[in-house]
Design a binder for these strands. Structure first.
Lengths: 233, 233
DNA sequence: TGACACACTCGTACAGTGTGCGAGAGGATT
DNA sequence: AATCCTCTCGCACACTGTACGAGTGTGTCA
């Protein structure tokens, strides 16, 4: 009845002879190239094989299935996040730096945003980042379960905020919609809520990039303040 | 160069003659059935056609493509969220009720969690909920852009927290993994972080359901406190 | 009554997907 | 020389979303 726990990180790697053609590293790099260039749908096993000048199914010797490959690629992105030592910079700065770098990583690799939260983050990079955050919150004064709750709250905020941003960017890029039409559609849909509509129209001319950043910082400050409030009791 | 803004809510519906066989409502209901029963991968146009005792491609008369159908189904889920009138219960209670009901809706319809944030929420139900939240935060004392920032912060937290929960549940259900093996895998992966590992092992025997709820409430209180802190200046 | 238009249905086809299987190549070991 | 292990890959299967166009039934107007 009970099946095995399937994740790359649980299996020990293939013996890894002296690179007879393909290798796991090489495959992951190629996959990252494809993902960055063409997005999550741009990665197919056939294309990957072609990029490596290999047969489509050769990859399956090094990786159990496509999901495992994605786990591997995903963890590379966690490696791009920066978590300064909280003992040096303080827990707030550490959390803030993590949040911003996580957002940046997702914006730089939109495909990773579609994996986050949906895929176990048990790779070495992900664990390292998580551990750093735990250190930070322990230093802040959290104890026991609350350390993990705090980490969870912060990361939940970051990618809850970032996922929609990334997919909106993706949408804008793939099908550049006519701005007039977008406004017309929104006007029609939200006709019943004039105040909301006013706000949307008012912000419509502002720089969307700066807007998003302000919005992110507003929420981030709130979350950090809220966590800090949990300490003073 | 610029393409049209594609969303169901921008198009006007089909004339809708007196139900000659199929109808959009009927289709959406059938789609919801399939989604609830088999998840996001369980919905294919062929299966949907079969469920309606119709040809696979007949649905395309009522709906431009699968994405539109999902938008329609998605908005139904927003209809399940409850947002009590903030004028009666106060903004904090309103936000809290929204957060809990959003989480419940996602847990009840896991497929919807995989759409959230990725799909424009411009349906009538989604807009209604958003508007209610805006009312709440305006009543709290937020002004201008900050109203929207506050709404964004709260919803980001909720689904940042809920998405991983839902996908972990889905994983548990589809492939009941051996608990011993899971722990073995985690032990191996996190061997370098003994403190983290201790925590995981310690919480391993607790009721996961209750744990998740506590974690959610911890973060929710933090976020609400953090937002409240933005007001007192 | 005949002609035309419209609303709708659906079979077929196309271009893709992940991956199981099994045959085979090439090098190392016995 | 025989055997084994590592690795490659062509083929096939069961799917996917959806474009296209032919066909059906009903309503309207001359």
């Amino acid at each position: 009845m009970s099946k095995p726990f399937k994740t790359v990180w649980a299996r020990d790697q293939r013996p890894a002879k002296a690179s007879p053609g393909l290798s796991r590293d090489q495959i992951v790099r190629a996959a990252l190239d494809l993902l960055d260039a063409e997005g999550i749908d741009g990665l197919s096993m056939r294309k990957l094989g072609a990029k490596l000048s290999a047969g489509a199914t050769s990859v399956y010797w090094y990786v159990a299935n496509k999901d495992e490959l994605l786990e591997l690629a995903y963890d590379e992105i966690w490696g791009e996040m920066t978590t300064p030592d909280p003992a040096l910079v303080g827990w707030r700065h550490c959390g803030s730096a993590f949040a911003h770098s996580m957002r940046q990583a997702m914006l730089a690799h939109p495909w990773a945003a579609s994996l986050i939260g949906r895929m176990p983050a048990l790779g070495p990079n992900a664990l390292g980042v998580t551990n750093r955050m735990r250190e930070g919150f322990m230093l802040a004064g959290f104890e026991g379960l609350e350390v993990d709750y705090a980490v969870g709250t912060l990361t939940a905020y970051v990618f809850g905020m970032t996922i929609p941003e990334v997919s909106y960017n993706a949408y804008l890029e793939e099908s550049q919609p006519d701005q007039e039409e977008v406004m017309a559609a929104i006007t029609k849909a939200a006709a019943a809520y004039p105040d909301m509509l006013d706000r949307i129209k008012a912000t419509h001319r502002l720089d969307p990039r700066a807007m998003r950043e302000m919005s992110f910082d507003f929420g981030l400050s709130s979350v950090l303040d809220g966590l800090e409030a949990r300490l003073v009791t």
